[in-house]
Write a protein that binds this DNA or RNA. Structure first.
Length: 853
DNA sequence: ATAGGGTTAG
């Protein structure tokens, strides 16, 4: 803090003790009026230079003189400081004035309003908004009636400054500070800047703090805070929205339901439905019963999780909140997302029943959602029935309803029906939008009527969508009014007012293709890559930008025409064009590679998409697994099994059948001498268990192929699965074996016997079959570990370990994790393939010769 | 102060 004396020294005013220059008198001086709160009269007037010297209020003539001189001095000082815009210094002087015993009101009275006003105008003009805020705040603290500083000119300057600041999109906190002060001064801040603009800027700058402060200027803070939450939500800024929510969730001591439902909606906008759940839990913890809006919003946001949505619906019923039409519509929407058409029909019947009792009235959303759920389920006839219901109920279908109806026909490949509905829609006076048109084009494409799609498109583009409206039509009057009123200022709809001789008049709608329109048409190009490319160019000419789907279709067409290299290049150029490929794009490219037997590239694409953190889905995995006939080496089988494990980790239920066949064939390649085995295996295929235990185990073993010592766990596998398992590991060992390597360990095979046979898939004879396979088919030496003498297995089958009471079988010193299914010890037994015989077998066979193809 | 539609890959 600078010393007041230093300020004095730098000031152009000379000390009053000497010859003080007369204050400028060329303009009328306007004294500042202190605000009423601090209004105190100045009863003595003698200046003192030092704060240590107190004002002397004793009414002597000497004192009066001294006080007058002091006052003159301060008057000049403040005049000059204000004139020069040195408000910071002015406040220091005020402070010293007060410290020396003066009253703030006395100081304020010294200030010249015109000069202060001029200083402020200068600051505004200079764009020193930060200082202005500080100065206005300081003046207000002194008790200065700041509002008087703003004449019309200053207000205008201020308004312009606000606009300039907004244009700069710089520091929204600063603008809000200014508005806070203006509000405090009694201005209506809406005069300076529209609330929507401030909110937009706060959202853009991601500054919830400024938005909250701004909202607090207004009496309807809570409504405004909710609006702000939604705005943040639209920009997918949940973090900021939650900041706002924290401020607004409590209102007068109880949870603000409006704020709760709003933040739940915002969670939906931001795609964070789990957050919406925790917010709901938080509300429950306060022991308050949410209202219908909160329940509906929560169900709506979680509509894609049918079971959770239903759980909430039931909770709502339990706490006695009555479902309204919105609740039912959300139930239907959830059914639609879960593709549960029949459940939707049940709910629809319930709601119809409620309507018949007069409890509620179905609306266009109800019907429309029903039509959509049925359209998706390819139940087009029922979808059309719903349309009849709604017409009977007097609910007028809107564009979305018609689009859904047309889509119902499109999904069923019914081009004629779709066209009929389109005409009907026009007759009903419903203006077709792009989506309707797209649905119709899609219907043509689904019905393989490609030419028809192109013809429709061409005619719509050239002439718009034309139709004749019959005079006597149901909604005739509506159309007439509509068409004629539009005619006045728009050329998109023409209307020749018909007389009685002409029962109909033509009407024309404009047609604006969208990216989807072009995508649908590109699909209609089949394998004509150049046609598709030309459409994409045309699309760009129209100012539309290709999206993921456009690129995916182009890749598909290019690859479909046999040009794999070209398809991959499109994938690259897509990156350059600034569109990030998604799962579908990659899956399409992978499909192209797989179809053209380019497995390596297919897998490299999978690795690439993972690098970009694009999660493969079921289609991606299945597409890769479809390449099965290509696998022959261990590495390829490992890749394949890795995919299988990935799938399970990602929560997909793989279809194991082909994979099992693949592994089987691969394994059996290990036995080359005994060709008749293949026939036996083929006949045993049916005995493969439905579970994926085998695949899981094989995958596990093949992945740990670097492990020093190997053991094969065949517990829980059927006889045939155990065989595959053992062969798979042997094949792996063989493929990894290099001549000259030594075999360091025996191979252990973990067997399981459950004589009391609880839930076992293990058939008797498994052990024997494995032992035979190893000994006779492969010529390996097999020992039974765990029997007292570890005696050789040559033919004399040791049945002692089948008995649970045998001493040997009580051993629990097994190296493997045990899942204990009961308190009784599960008896286990192992077979050991000696390293010596393994080594011999490896050298005899030679790793490479056993590859199948 | 709710909620609805179209196009892509097995």
């Amino acid at each position: 803090m600078r010393d007041a004396i230093a300020i004095l020294a730098s000031c152009s005013v000379t000390l009053p003790a000497t010859h003080a220059p007369a204050p400028p008198s060329h303009h009328r001086r306007r004294r500042c009026r202190p605000s009423p709160r601090t209004n105190q009269s100045l009863n003595s007037t003698a200046p003192s230079l030092h704060s240590t010297v107190r004002w002397d209020y004793a009414s002597t003539s000497r004192n009066r003189n001294r006080n007058r001189k002091r006052l003159e001095y301060y008057t000049d000082l403040t005049f000059n400081l204000a004139r020069d815009g040195r408000f910071r210094d002015l406040f220091m002087i005020a402070e010293s004035f007060v410290v020396s015993g003066g009253k703030p009101s006395q100081f304020v009275a010294l200030l010249d309003v015109n000069i202060v006003s001029a200083g402020i105008s200068r600051m505004i003009k200079d764009g020193r908004l930060g200082s202005l805020i500080e100065v206005l705040g300081g003046l207000r603290k002194l008790g200065f009636a700041v509002v008087e500083l703003f004449d019309g000119l200053a207000v205008e300057a201020l308004r312009q400054e606000c606009r300039r600041q907004l244009g700069k999109r710089d520091d929204v906190e600063e603008i809000v500070s200014l508005l806070e002060i203006l509000q405090g001064l009694g201005f209506s801040t809406k005069e300076f800047v529209a609330p929507s603009e401030i909110i937009r800027l706060c959202v853009y700058r991601r500054t919830p703090s400024a938005a909250i402060r701004y909202a607090q200027i207004f009496p309807q803070v809570h409504t405004l805070l909710c609006t702000i939450m939604i705005e943040f939500g639209k920009k997918r800024d949940l973090v900021s929205a939650l900041c706002v929510f924290e401020v607004s969730k409590q209102n007068q001591g109880c949870p603000n339901m409006y704020a709760y439902r709003t933040i739940i909606d915002v969670c939906g906008l931001c795609g964070d439905y789990l957050k919406s759940r925790s917010i709901y839990e938080e509300l429950l913890d306060c022991k308050f019963i949410p209202n219908i809006y909160v329940f509906n919003s929560l169900m709506n946001v979680n509509a894609s999780d049918f079971s959770y949505m239903l759980h909430i619906y039931k909770q709502m019923q339990k706490v006695g909140v009555t479902a309204d039409l919105a609740s039912y519509n959300i139930l239907l929407k959830s059914c639609c997302l879960a593709a549960r058409a029949h459940l939707a029909l049940d709910i629809y019947r319930d709601v119809q029943h409620l309507e018949s009792k007069g409890a509620l009235k179905l609306d266009v959303f109800t019907y429309c959602t029903m039509i959509k759920v049925l359209a998706d389920a390819r139940m087009w006839r029922m979808a059309l029935e719903i349309k009849e219901h709604m017409l009977l109920a007097g609910v007028i279908p809107n564009t979305v309803t018609w689009s859904s109806l047309i889509s119902a026909c499109a999904n069923a490949g019914l081009a004629e029906q779709a066209i009929q509905l389109f005409e009907e829609m026009l007759q009903a006076g419903c203006e077709p939008n792009s989506q309707c048109c797209n649905a119709l084009l899609h219907a043509c494409v689904e019905a393989h009527q490609y030419d028809r799609a192109f013809r429709l498109f061409k005619s719509w583009k050239e002439n718009g969508i034309k139709m004749s409206v019959r005079k006597d039509f149901h909604w005739m009057n509506k159309i007439n009014d509509y068409a004629c009123s539009k005619h006045e200022n728009s050329s998109t709809i023409t209307c020749r007012t018909s007389d009685s001789e002409h029962p109909s008049f033509p009407i024309r709608f404009s047609f604006a293709p969208t990216t989807s329109t072009y995508n649908i048409l590109m699909k209609a190009c089949g394998t004509d890559y150049y046609h598709a490319k030309a459409l994409m160019d045309e699309m760009k000419m129209e100012g539309l930008s290709p999206n993921n789907i456009t690129w995916s279709i182009l890749i598909d067409i290019c690859g479909g025409s046999g040009n794999v290299h070209g398809a991959l290049q499109i994938l690259r150029s897509m990156h350059q064009a600034g569109t990030q490929p998604d799962v579908v794009t990659y899956t399409t490219a992978i499909k192209i590679c797989v179809e053209h037997k380019n497995i390596k590239v297919a897998f490299s694409l999978l690795a690439e998409m993972k690098r970009y953190q694009i999660k493969p889905n079921l289609v991606t995995y299945n597409t890769l697994l479809r390449a099965r006939s290509q696998y022959g080496s261990l590495q390829e089988v490992q890749q394949c099994l890795a995919i299988y494990q990935d799938m399970r980790k990602a929560g997909y239920k793989p279809n194991d059948f082909y994979l099992k066949l693949l592994i089987e064939e691969w394994c059996e390649g290990v036995i080359q001498q005994n060709k008749q085995n293949k026939g036996q295996i083929a006949s045993d295929r049916a005995s493969l268990g439905p579970q994926s235990l085998l695949l899981e185990k094989v995958a596990e073993h093949l992945q740990d192929s670097n492990a020093e010592s190997l053991s094969i766990d065949i517990r829980g596998l059927t006889k045939i699965e155990a065989r595959i398992m053992v062969l798979a590991v042997l094949r792996m060992i063989k493929e990894k074996y290099n001549p000259g390597d030594s075999v360091r360990d025996d191979l252990l095979i973990i067997l399981e016997e459950e004589p009391w046979g609880c839930a076992s898939r293990h058939e008797t004879g498994s052990t024997e079959a494995i032992a035979n396979l190893l000994q006779y088919d492969l010529g390996l030496e097999v020992l039974s570990v765990g029997s007292v003498d570890g005696r050789n297995f040559n033919g004399g089958f040791d049945t002692s370990f089948l008995c649970p009471n045998s001493k040997v079988l009580q051993r629990r010193d097994l190296p493997l994790k045990l899942e204990s299914r009961s308190r009784r010890p599960v008896p286990l037994q192992r077979l050991k393939v000696t390293k010596g015989s393994l080594h011999h077998w490896l050298q005899k066979g030679g790793a490479s010769t056993s590859r199948s193809d």
